Computed example of a mutant assay.
Amino acid sequence: MNALMAQTHSKILSGKDFLTMKETTSKEISALLELAQNIKAKLHAGEEYKPLTGKTLGMIFEKSSTRTRVSFEVGMLQLGGNALFLSSNDLQIGRGEPISDTAKVLSEYIDGIMIRTFEHEKIMELAENASIPVINGLTDLAHPSQVMADFLTILELKGKLTGLKMSYIGDGNNVANSLMVGCAKMGMNFSLGCPEGYKPDEEIVAYAKGVAAENNCEVVVTTSAVEAIKDADIVYSDVWTSMGQELENSIRLEAFKSYQINGELVKHAKKDYIFMHCLPAHREEEVTAEVIDGPNSVVFHQAGNRLHAQKALLVDLLS
């Protein structure tokens, strides 16, 4: 069996935490994906693999979730550890205790923290003050754990990452930011189509373009959905209105109406494209039922890989 599967795991990530794709090298991403594939294979073969026996992950949720909570919680249990669901409503952090104090206190009790929150600054302060690993389960700026599951899915279905083209159509949000950087690091072409006023973070775009130039691939941001999706191997979408943006919903629906992924738009992608969505999806808004429930859609395979990709992160950071 691959050496990565040894109970005494050789650490992959050079840092203590997993906060954004920016701090992660292409070599580390590849090694984490290999570890995820091996952990997944062991699970499907019915082999016991419990390198996190006796370890506890604290999961702080300031944003609700289905996939993030269940995949991290089940992942810890399958790896022999424990997971604590910590709602901000139940913690002193929700009543004004400084993040730095919370980080230091939790470091006395548990072995790692996964947080799903709003401001990215909050996770940075948490990681800075915690002596234990901190994993980004989502912030308004980044969603790197989702990207690891996405890359695992693409690798399984396309056999490679390098040289493929991913087209992201929709809001230049946290998922778009992380995918863009991840694709650039892995030699994947990335094209984003979105309306003016909803483009991704300019500093992240500039960084991703620089990385892409070094890796012989391209990062393009355009207002044309057709231009973005042309010859795509992967077509990706997310909701137009994320949590915390509900008051903007009617404005956003109007701004994004020509960016819907539908039967006409996907004709510009490659015939064997795969459709991805981080879920939850709003059918007939960002994507039609024809596409998301069609033969090219892999959204549930992708959602399932959240478990395996995150188990690799947990093993690497907590064991």
Score class of each variant (00 low, 15 high):
59 M>Y: 00
47 E>L: 06
23 E>R: 05
282 H>F: 15
274 I>D: 09
36 A>W: 12
263 G>N: 13
183 C>M: 08
288 T>L: 13
52 L>M: 03
268 H>P: 01
290 E>F: 08
309 A>P: 11
161 L>W: 14
159 G>T: 13
101 D>C: 03
123 I>K: 11
198 Y>K: 00
111 D>M: 00
4 L>A: 03
220 V>F: 07
174 N>P: 08
214 E>L: 11
70 V>C: 10
125 E>S: 14
150 D>C: 10
233 D>A: 13
239 V>L: 14
103 A>C: 10
313 L>S: 06
227 E>L: 14
316 D>R: 09
305 N>C: 06
71 S>M: 13
269 A>N: 12
93 I>P: 03
250 S>K: 15
258 S>H: 13
158 K>F: 00
74 V>H: 04
183 C>D: 02
159 G>Q: 15
193 G>D: 12
211 V>P: 03
311 K>Y: 11
274 I>N: 08
140 D>M: 00
81 G>D: 05
76 M>L: 04
167 S>T: 12
70 V>A: 07
293 D>S: 13
167 S>P: 12
37 Q>H: 11
312 A>H: 07
310 Q>C: 09
273 Y>F: 15
312 A>D: 04
49 Y>T: 03
14 S>D: 07
30 S>R: 15
121 E>Y: 06
170 G>A: 06
189 N>E: 11
279 L>W: 05
232 A>W: 11
298 V>P: 04
217 C>W: 14
107 S>C: 05
86 L>D: 02
202 E>P: 02
242 S>P: 06
211 V>R: 05
152 L>F: 06
275 F>A: 09
276 M>T: 12
84 L>K: 04
98 P>V: 05
209 K>V: 04
105 V>M: 07
9 H>T: 00
210 G>L: 00
21 M>N: 07
99 I>W: 10
271 K>D: 10
65 S>Q: 06
114 M>W: 11
267 K>L: 02
72 F>D: 09
314 L>Y: 00
215 N>Q: 06
275 F>L: 14
126 L>F: 01
235 V>K: 10
80 G>C: 06
255 A>G: 02
240 W>A: 01
165 K>N: 04
136 N>W: 08
40 K>R: 03
1 M>R: 11
311 K>G: 10
101 D>E: 14
118 F>P: 01
311 K>F: 11
19 L>D: 01
54 G>I: 02
210 G>P: 01
18 F>E: 01
246 E>R: 07
4 L>K: 04
213 A>L: 11
239 V>G: 10
132 I>N: 06
77 L>H: 15
237 S>K: 14
23 E>K: 02
109 Y>W: 14
157 L>R: 15
39 I>W: 14
233 D>K: 15
162 T>K: 15
222 T>Y: 05
30 S>E: 14
268 H>R: 07
36 A>E: 09
43 L>W: 10
119 E>M: 10
211 V>M: 05
201 D>C: 02
94 G>T: 05
63 K>P: 05
173 N>L: 08
4 L>S: 05
308 H>N: 15
243 M>S: 02
54 G>V: 03
311 K>S: 08
143 H>K: 04
289 A>T: 13
53 T>I: 13
263 G>L: 05
151 F>M: 15
155 L>W: 13
15 G>A: 09
163 G>W: 04
303 A>Q: 12
161 L>Y: 07
33 L>G: 10
30 S>H: 12
290 E>K: 14
280 P>A: 02
139 T>G: 11
45 A>N: 08
64 S>N: 15
271 K>E: 11
20 T>C: 13
